[in-house]
Amino acid sequence: MNNKENFLKGIFSENPVFMLVLGMCPVLAITTTVTNALGMGLAFTFVLIMSNVIISLIRKFIPNDIRIPAYIVVIATVVTIVDMFMHAYAFSLYESLGIFIPLIVVNCVVLGRAEAFASKNGVFASFIDALGMGAGFTLSITLISTVREVLGSGTFLGIDIFPFDLVQPASIFVIAPGAFITLGILLGIINTIRFKRAKKAQAKE
């Protein structure tokens, strides 16, 4: 597998949100506005890159039996750095993401990549893997939050896109049920496209 495939698999074939359906808590909770989603995506990508690189660097020194606690300590350290950094330099974002920044520690995607990829591959490959996964995650939550923000509050990145109250926004998309329903319908649409492609490929053969 070359670097390009390694990077692109995080966005398409192994997209953590739409393909693997992992790490759903932040996906549902913080996608109320596009700004929040971008902030979360950046924080998440940073944690993923740092933890993948560090774990890949020390993978030969960690005894096999205690590898999971060791990974968790590395991830928790990186998350604490992000938490303190956001508290100092992006306070409004820190406030709106709330407990979901410390909760990156228990996100299955981060631990999953450490266990499945960084513990077996070199530093550079792990870096590319984390970059791809982070980009896939960020793009997915940006898509979900775009749907929710446009339909739910009639804005995009905080700018009113329906002037003069032409369309009344449906506020259900901003509250909790909207998160589940939006993600469910988007997953359904993506599955439909996937099945159609698979059928076409089969017909060709």
């Binding site: 359906v21 909207g178 589940f180 329903i181 993600l183 469910g184 319908i185 997953l187 359904g188 599955n191």
Partner: peptide, 10 residues
């Protein structure tokens, strides 16, 4: 999963 999410929404 998609239908499960929609049920959770309801």
């Amino acid at each position: 999963t998609p239908i499960a999410l929609i049920i959770a929404g309801l």
